[in-house]
Simulated assay, not measured.
Amino acid sequence: MSMFDNLKDKASDLVDDHGDKVGEGLDKAGDFADEKTGGKYSDQIDQGVDQAKGGLDGLDGQDDDIDGDNQ
């Protein structure tokens, strides 16, 4: 198993066990970035947060660990 496969497995396990916390963290990071840019890039930031959530949630081949709603 390569280093990247091992890292992917660990990230997948983390998201499986703590998907709600990961989603909250991504939302907070998006809100912070939106605040720092004065709301100028809100749509792009929201898209990025949603893509990050989808990518992390799909690591195990299922879309079931992170809530897709963005604040």
Rank of each mutant, 00 (worst) to 15 (best):
V49M: 02
G61W: 12
G30E: 05
K10R: 14
Q47N: 14
D43M: 04
L7T: 13
G68K: 14
K8N: 10
D64I: 12
L59E: 00
S12Q: 11
L14N: 05
H18N: 15
K28D: 09
K36V: 09
D60F: 01
Q44W: 00
G48Y: 01
D67H: 08
A52L: 08
V15A: 06
Q71W: 13
A52S: 06
G68P: 01
L59H: 01
D16N: 15
D9L: 12
Q44C: 00
K21W: 09
K8Q: 12
S12P: 01
G48V: 04
D5Q: 12
Q44Y: 04
K36Y: 07
G19M: 03
Q47W: 00
D50E: 14
K28F: 06
S2N: 13
D57R: 03
A29K: 07
D65S: 15
G38E: 03
S12D: 10
D43R: 08
I45G: 03
D16G: 10
D63F: 13
D46E: 14
S2F: 04
D67L: 06
T37K: 03
K40M: 10
D65I: 02
D31R: 09
K28V: 04
S2K: 08
G38K: 04
K36I: 08
N70W: 00
L14A: 11
M3H: 10
S12Y: 02
G58K: 08
K8Y: 09
K21Q: 15
K28W: 06
Q62V: 11
I66R: 06
G19N: 05
Q62Y: 12
D5V: 10
Q62H: 12
E35S: 15
D17I: 08
F4A: 15
G19I: 05
G68C: 00
D64N: 15
Y41K: 10
N70H: 05
A29I: 08
I66T: 07
V15D: 04
D64A: 13
D13R: 13
A11Y: 00
M1H: 09
G30K: 05
G19R: 06
G23F: 02
K28T: 06
G30C: 05
V22L: 01
Q71T: 11
T37C: 07
S12N: 08
A11T: 07
G30S: 05
E35V: 01
G68F: 01
K10G: 00
S12A: 15
V49C: 03
M1D: 13
V49G: 01
M1K: 11
D43A: 12
K36M: 12
D57V: 03
L56G: 07
D46K: 14
V15I: 10
G25S: 07
D67G: 08
K8E: 10
Q47T: 15
N6H: 12
D64T: 15
D34N: 14
D67N: 14
K28A: 09
F32M: 10
T37I: 01
Y41C: 04
D63L: 09
A11L: 15
L14P: 00
L7D: 11
D17Q: 15
G25I: 02
G61M: 09
Y41E: 10
I45S: 04
